[in-house]
Nucleic acid binder design. Structure first.
Lengths: 207, 207
DNA sequence: GCCGAAGGTGAGCGGGCGCTTAGCGTGGCC
DNA sequence: GGCCACGCTAAGCGCCCGCTCACCTTCGGC
């Protein structure tokens, strides 16, 4: 199955910081299961089974099923923020930085859509405290993109009616890639990234 | 709670065709519960309770919990298709028709986000047959929007690199409104509709 | 060679799930 | 007034859920 290969392959690097090995295997198994079926439809027995362990083994490394989702969500959001921050802080015009931010953010959502789906769509399954923590990271993502657009407007590069609304629309467009993208579809992550960078530059009226 | 008011008020009209009354109350209760908690996290006891009935009453009107989701999904998609079709077939330039389609489609996703959330995000919880039926409706929605964009390109009104990809992006942008829109936020559905119509016209390079 | 810590297992608990069934009240029809 | 069809409820079945616990290995330090 493509999801397993992908998560076991390229995506796994993102989880390198998780130790010990058994805890990482469980986390990766949980990402796959949550992405396929959703958090509530996934059983702890399924997660443990995918990691090649007994159901009880999960509770040696994680207190609850929700802690797994919380850890996945935080690591994923930190990665997303890092991507946007890198693009935002590079040298270049606002248009170049925005195109870079959008294309790399979209590539992440398309290529790592297993992770991105969990990160973007299972937020409501977290408890209040964990959700608040993740929402703070999300606002930082928002601020990075808004910063680039504000720079472009200030420099006369962009022509935008509503900076806040346009920022939201740009992020929304990128995030929804995780919902519809499929490796069986006609596009590669790179192609979608390039197409979307062009569309977003049009949205902000780049000269 | 705003969701209850909204569904009991303006949105209810959409369910007028559902009879008898008890079946309609159960359907509306299910829409609210699925939108708040997700399909898998919603119990049949919760649905029946919201409709003011005992758990067993649900099974007089619906064979299974999944049948409720199926019915909601089909009615919702038919409504979405009708909105796009109306805009697509009106008189006017391609730009006017596209702006109309986007603004009314977005208004529906924002104003009726309780319904829209279920319709757009709970598709995977349906069984294979029901999902296939709904996906056919979704492809028809896609075709309506693509038709307008193709008309605009043919008439020299639009400047689009990738018609299929741009169509997908436009629909994706509109659909994701159901994920983030909140009545407590700074915009009304009308304002988001107008903003998005402008953004989409920019995306297709309308003259 | 013994020991304790770390990491794992099999069995199973309390509970809530989707759904069923036996029976009850009630309104329309003759 | 007698009767039945319909809409509904109270009770509960069988199942599987998240999670626990008693016990079992393995292995480095001495």
């Amino acid at each position: 199955m493509s999801t397993a290969e992908e998560t076991a392959g390229g995506e796994t690097s993102a989880w390198g910081e998780v130790t010990p090995d058994a805890a990482r295997r469980l986390l990766i198994a949980a990402v796959e299961a949550f992405a396929e079926r959703g958090y509530h439809a996934t059983t702890t027995r399924d997660i443990a089974g995918r990691a090649g362990m007994s159901p009880a083994a999960l509770y040696i490394h994680y207190k609850t099923k929700e802690e797994l989702l919380h850890r996945i969500s935080r690591i994923g959001h930190e990665k997303a923020l890092e991507i946007l921050r890198t693009a935002s802080r590079r040298e270049g015009t606002a248009a170049e930085r925005l195109a870079d931010a959008v294309s790399s953010f979209v590539r992440w959502h398309a290529g790592g859509r297993t992770t991105a789906r969990v990160v973007q769509y299972e937020l409501d399954s977290l408890g209040p405290d964990a959700r608040a923590e993740i929402l703070a990271l999300r606002r930082q993502c928002d601020a990075e993109v808004r910063g680039i657009i504000e720079d472009g407007v200030a420099a006369g590069e962009f022509d935008v009616l509503d900076v806040k609304g346009t920022t939201l629309a740009v992020l929304s467009l990128c995030i929804d890639v995780a919902r519809w993208f499929s490796v069986d579809g006609p596009w590669t992550p790179d192609e979608v990234g390039a197409l979307y960078a062009d569309l977003v530059l049009r949205m902000v009226g780049a000269k």
